[in-house]
Design a protein around this nucleic acid. Sequence first.
DNA 1: AGAAACCGACTGACCAGTCGGTTTGGTGAT
DNA 2: ATCACCAAACCGACTGGTCAGTCGGTTTCT
Lengths: 214, 214
Amino acid sequence: MSLRLPRRSSTGRKDATRHALLEAALNVFGEKGYHGAAVDDIVDRAGRSKGAAYFHFPSKAAIFRALVRELANQLVNSIQRKMDDVDSPAERLDAALLGLIDVFVRHRSLARIVLIEVAGAGRAFSDDLIFVRRQFADLIERELDRAVEIGAIPPCDTHLIATAWFGALNEVAVHWLHDPDAGSLHASYPSLRQLLLQSVGFSPAEVDRVPLHA
Amino acid sequence: MSLRLPRRSSTGRKDATRHALLEAALNVFGEKGYHGAAVDDIVDRAGRSKGAAYFHFPSKAAIFRALVRELANQLVNSIQRKMDDVDSPAERLDAALLGLIDVFVRHRSLARIVLIEVAGAGRAFSDDLIFVRRQFADLIERELDRAVEIGAIPPCDTHLIATAWFGALNEVAVHWLHDPDAGSLHASYPSLRQLLLQSVGFSPAEVDRVPLHA
DNA sequence: AGAAACCGACTGACCAGTCGGTTTGGTGAT
DNA sequence: ATCACCAAACCGACTGGTCAGTCGGTTTCT
């Protein structure tokens, strides 16, 4: 149902509890937001006790932080794997974009947390906010650099562009999160893809190629 | 110092207090975030009393909402005015972009509230979130539609693109808000401009034109 | 036995919102 | 010009509810 949060050893009671807590946190934070969620909510949903929560994590903030970091790593790895299945820069960027959209659609709570809650939880979390966003942006930046290197696109400020790309996807996703009926995320993909690829000067031939996965 | 929040009549004691409260709210919410700010903080900063605050607004949420709406309207009007000074679509979009960047740089609290806090304040505010973002996106969308109409750019999904554009700017601004020393917002503008204009297929001649205001 | 893991009632701090009381400014009667 | 009066505007101590974090005690594993 939800992304596999890492379960360190397969049998330990300790890890099972930690995992249950994080999974509950994912849902509760996703539904009620960081401030709207009480530690008791998470604990109840996990079928554990407050004592257990504070045995594993020093604070509510630490639960949130751990969750965000693990979600981000998990997500980035999964996207990276999808990118490595193909070779041309345009296809790899495609894979990243589609992969992100896929995961968001399937795991709405995750999307809410990664895209909205981290930003809104407060300044105390701004390092985490930047950490997450950079993870994604770096993924894109590396690909753009590669595309520049092999001459698929002209040289440009790939760092800024990667940031802007993520922002564009983020904004579209935020609107979709607010009103899922307004239009599926997947439906926006072709326009978004065209917009982004064109923005860095991919050749029209590459841009026009119909994506395989749609 | 701060944007002029509307002061309805020039002399009324009532309006002066309302204005003082909103101005204080702008700073306090901008610094501590919605949840981190106590009504007492706002009241203290405004040099007023809690009674006055609850005489003017029914709740803390209402203060926030009123502030967000007024900031958004103020901002959109100011941008619109700047756009109307020029004529060609590319220039008008330029003016919008630069205007937004200008205001954000000058009024960091405003930027934090409009770009981050509204999103993070919780689901209760998601209507306000969408309201604000749509205001900006509509501004851009109208211009894009105009550009399509006169044949400056090919037909495209202007609604989606406007959303994506705002997201791109938003993301760059969020990083800048987190670490202002990392690079000024104005410095990012040329790359961003090029990226966005190119993304919708403006002719290279239009894209390459060096902006007047830089 | 001893330690690691877990339980859940309790506490203390915080804070949105209330309310009885006070000040201020306007209006009109004298 | 003075005063009486009223309502709008304002004050700030207080209340009630919420919730993060604690801690003495229990269970489970080795």
